[in-house]
Nucleic acid binder design. Structure first.
Lengths: 251, 251
DNA sequence: CACCATTTGTCCGTATGTATT
DNA sequence: GAATACATACGGACAAATGGT
């Protein structure tokens, strides 16, 4: 038995059916205090409960799925989603790809935001960090140096490094935002060429950041973060200046 | 005539049909360099172009609509969306409402992020601001004071104030993020009681911020922002303290 | 292994509401 | 008002995936 009040106004409102259904589902989750992973009524049950056709219910579920509010497992059921920032990643990534064709505006702004957050949190990060974190950061920086020496990429270590930085703050939202921004950056940025010089700078910057945290030196931390994003900004500027004139993307 | 390559593998992949359709649509927008407001093929055209049924196409469109990548006008057509951060607002708002029942974790983290961004941008804001902005900020702060004196709310002025602060930076992403955070805050926070004392503090904080910007005093700006979020943090703490102590979660 | 029940995924046909001409 | 084009909504049917017997 599913306790969802049916839609009183039989679609005579200006709002689409699926929108009302989506609201009902969110309401159901809130009222029943459900959390990520908890089971939701089946499509059929939802149809009967809210008095809507299966199509409307499914479309409503799809919009909620896009926001990671619900999660659907084929042949198994519908569940409360993880409430991640996946939607932000999708949305921002698309914006970045769309602007990439003309300018790198979104990417440029993204870099500024990332730098601001890390520098703004400098004091908190340095103060809240502990020895084990220091070890992990230094270790990751060395791994990156080794990868670079072998000519390999070190994106995994880079991502982990920046997430670890914010971990001691205990702010999940900030951590997930940073992860989202990093993901968008990683997807949109590859069109920028990376010179061996910028790679060397990047590796050295991570080492400097790790050392600054370990030494609890706030101003050194801020300078290191500045140095970290410098090569990225430079690449952006250069890409804007001699942009490929006839570079038609392959279909 | 719509030029969208049909889905070669007739759904024999593990990925759902609507997902492939959504990818095709995004690809179509990118390849044709479309921007917000540009028209997309009709549902029927999309069906034939990608070789999928209306249901699949519609569900794909709904997921893209949730991300504001496409926008649908009933009886008119389908268009490229505004690529706003509406999805982030929806997603974060729901998280906030869900966590509100137990703790105010999301809201608390949100406040920290907002404060970090504004303080992190302090120097840039102060330096990039011009006289007209100073006037607008001071004016808004006075409007808020007048509203408070009349016992009215001043949420519109508050929102405008914080958005204006970041405007001189010319970073659209940052502005939209701030707007999104503000919106989430405004939706989730009302459950916190506002005392006349905290209202007075808030109004005074906005005045102090405006004066700091006008005086181009960075450290005063940072202190004012600190003072601005102080009453909010205090409300959060108090709401957490006298919460039902024996609250065993119902099974 | 085969078999079955449950649940979501996809497709089709039809009717209705909306907006433009 | 009529005609057209379009998205919205419904109901039924079958396919595909999952879990258990």
């Amino acid at each position: 038995m599913v306790e969802i009040a049916p839609i009183s106004r039989p679609s005579r409102g200006a709002t689409p059916r699926r929108h009302e259904v989506a609201e009902r589902i969110k309401q159901y989750i809130l009222q029943n205090r459900l959390g990520p992973g908890d089971a939701l009524p089946t499509e059929a049950e939802l149809c009967e409960a809210v008095g809507a056709s299966r199509s409307s219910v499914r479309e409503a579920i799809k919009t909620l799925t896009a926001l990671d509010i619900v999660e659907v497992r084929h042949g198994h059921g519908t569940y409360v989603g993880r409430l991640s920032l996946a939607a932000l990643v999708e949305s921002l990534t698309f914006r970045g790809l769309l602007s990439r064709a003309d300018d790198f505006r979104v990417l440029s702004e993204l870099v500024e935001v990332r730098q601001t957050v890390e520098q703004g949190m400098a004091a908190s990060i340095v103060n809240a960090s502990d020895e084990s974190l220091h070890g992990e950061l230094l270790d990751l920086a060395e791994q990156m140096a080794e990868c670079a020496a072998r000519g390999e990429s070190f994106i995994e270590q880079d991502r982990e490094f920046h997430l670890l930085l914010l971990e001691p703050l205990g702010n999940e939202l900030l951590t997930q935002l940073t992860a989202a921004f990093w993901d968008v950056h990683a997807i949109v940025a590859p069109s920028l060429g990376t010179t061996s010089e910028s790679v060397r700078e990047t590796v050295e910057a991570h080492r400097a950041i790790a050392r600054a945290v370990a030494a609890r030196d706030v101003s050194a931390f801020i300078r290191s973060v500045e140095a970290h994003y410098a090569p990225v900004r430079r690449n952006l500027r250069e890409s804007l200046e001699h942009r490929d004139p006839g570079g038609a993307p392959a279909g």
